[in-house]
Design a binder for these strands. Structure first.
Lengths: 213, 213
DNA sequence: GCCATAAGATACGGCGCGTTTCTTGTCTCT
DNA sequence: AGAGACAAGAAACGCGCCGTATCTTATGGC
């Protein structure tokens, strides 16, 4: 690739055209790096994303990356956090099944502009590291998706649509758990059919079932 | 780094040859290698298991490994397959919940003599490679655990314990899916409490729920 | 204009992969 | 028993990537 020496000035430097090549700093540089991460994810997937590749694409160098993030996973987390669509309010259509279907679909398609294997590989890698794993599951509770699921279910119970006794933490996260598992083991974002199956064969029947049985 | 040369304490030699320098072959060698894999798993966990380490421990060399298995994951699969307890018949106590609890417990504790992180790391790594992933999920169906779960549920339906209409492929694999997910995201083998929760809050109520609701 | 700061380039040591090459022991065939 | 095939075993290689250290040089704050 590039083989020029550091020699003063002219060769590569600012002279190289309108780009001006002025030295980026702070948040401008950071944005360029995270964009590069996103592009590398899209091009090569997660497994083949390397710090060197990111640095090259962002036209910077590895030390710049390591000054900001301790490792690859942290870097990618930052990129995902930056580029992911904003978190959505849980829908409220007046029918739980519809709410759940909409909500799960929005979660599943959050990263549709990245190749599936990039997202999959990243999630898998997340599971490897205990610290990242904890951060991930922690991010789901309360404020996150699990909280939204709980809210939707409680509304449905208030409406009399489902059995309130069935709403336990485990059941609240059930749709999430099942679809995550499907994604992990299937390697592909679960299709609408799978979502429907989960809702119609598992989640809804369970939530509607009477307490005594 | 290896300081131990051939000759010091070769315990695995077939006959008490002098210095035990006899060259192992075929299945004898293979067994020694898989034992070494097991030991490396136990000592260092999966992430830090290296082909070099296995070769060293088995007192052989990398090419010998690569002549038999294409990569690390395949090697470990072979080791797990060899050392795992034999597959169990599904229990039949006359009560589905008990059957399920026993069966899931036996699955979960199948690799208890390995460190948790070794098993976890291995499973996670399995998910990374599409081919291995397919092999893994394929190994669960029909002949495997899923088949047993189906059998237990069908027996329970015949007994009138549960609603036969609830027995669909997705529901059959539900206990497995949930506990696998718990293992993956939790990083630890699910406790008995978790198993009980899954059975009592999800699986059993669902299977018992009437069709109409 | 000076200077602390951080960018950017480069090189390094390390590790582990998967392969290649070559020697040498062992099994089998006649 | 001898010859030859076959695989074990040893050693080294190139590669890729990690994470770090060192140095130069541009830039923004004062």
């Amino acid at each position: 690739m590039v083989s020029e020496r550091a020699g003063s000035g002219s060769a590569t430097g600012p002279a190289a055209g309108p780009a001006g090549a002025s030295r980026r700093r702070g948040s401008e540089l950071e944005r360029a790096i995270l964009d590069a991460v996103w592009a590398e994810l899209a091009d090569h997937g997660y497994d083949r994303l390397t710090m060197e590749g990111v640095a090259a694409r962002a036209r910077t160098s590895k030390p710049v990356l390591y000054r900001r993030w301790p490792n690859r996973a942290a870097l990618v987390i930052a990129a995902l956090g930056r580029n992911a669509p904003d978190y959505q309010e849980p829908p409220d259509t007046g029918e739980l099944r519809t709410d759940l279907a909409l909500f799960m679909a929005s979660l599943l398609h959050r990263f549709d502009d990245l190749p599936t294997d990039a997202v999959h590989g990243f999630l898998v890698d997340l599971l490897r590291d205990p610290e990242l794993r904890a951060g991930f599951t922690g991010g789901l509770t309360a404020e996150g998706p699990v909280g939204s699921l709980g809210a939707m279910m409680r509304r449905a119970a208030d409406r009399g649509e489902i059995n309130p006794d069935r709403i336990t933490p485990r059941v609240v996260s059930l749709p999430l758990d099942l679809l995550r598992d499907a994604f992990l083991t299937g390697g592909a974002v679960p299709s609408d059919d799978v979502v429907a199956e989960v809702l119609d064969e598992v989640v809804m029947p369970l939530l509607r079932s009477p307490s005594g049985n």
